[in-house]
């Protein structure tokens, strides 16, 4: 079966019911996407499918029709996406384990809602747990990234 991830098409031989999360991590070696719960409770596994944020532990790889973007495809340490730049600037991460998912949620939110209010930010991140408690910094970084993206 074919799977397009970060602009590259891959031919993979796995069961169609295998969750996208584990295909990314174990088959394609893209370990930026994390496993936290496997039951749609934590958001650590969030990726984009055709620009929409989805929890990759909940998507069977056989059901993926669109192009997948992971944290690795969003930006790099040398060329970070504006959301990643805001995350660096605000030093959001503590352990950092949830942050790939948080950042993918943020990027999808801002693509859809360029100037979210506080309520919209909170609602968008409901599904992304952070055990370290970086929520105040996440709010600040999303608002800053929104301003940056508006300024262009």
């Amino acid at each position: 079966m074919k799977l397009t991830v970060n602009g590259t098409e891959h031919e993979i031989d796995v069961e169609p019911e295998m969750p996208l999360l584990w295909v990314l991590r174990d088959v394609l070696g893209l370990t930026g996407t994390k496993y936290g719960c496997g039951i749609a409770q934590c958001g650590a596994c969030t990726v984009h499918v055709d620009g929409v944020a989805v929890q990759s532990c909940q998507v069977a790889v056989g059901d993926v029709a669109g192009a997948v973007t992971t944290i690795e495809g969003l930006g790099t340490p040398q060329a970070p996406h504006p959301v990643q730049a805001a995350w660096i600037e605000h030093q959001v991460a503590q352990c950092g384990y949830c942050q790939s998912g948080q950042i993918m949620t943020a990027a999808a939110l801002l693509a859809e809602t360029p100037t979210p209010d506080d309520r919209q930010i909170d609602d968008a991140f409901w599904g992304n747990l952070c055990r370290c408690g970086t929520y105040p910094r996440i709010r600040a970084a999303v608002s800053a990234a929104a301003r940056k993206l508006q300024e262009g």
């Binding site: 930026g32 944290i71 690795e72 969003l74 930006g75 790099t76 990643q84 950092g96 950042i103």
Partner: peptide, 12 residues
């Protein structure tokens, strides 16, 4: 570790 943890490149 902040850049690595913001770009999915930190290895846990």
């Amino acid at each position: 570790d902040i850049a690595a943890k913001s770009t999915g490149t930190a290895r846990f």
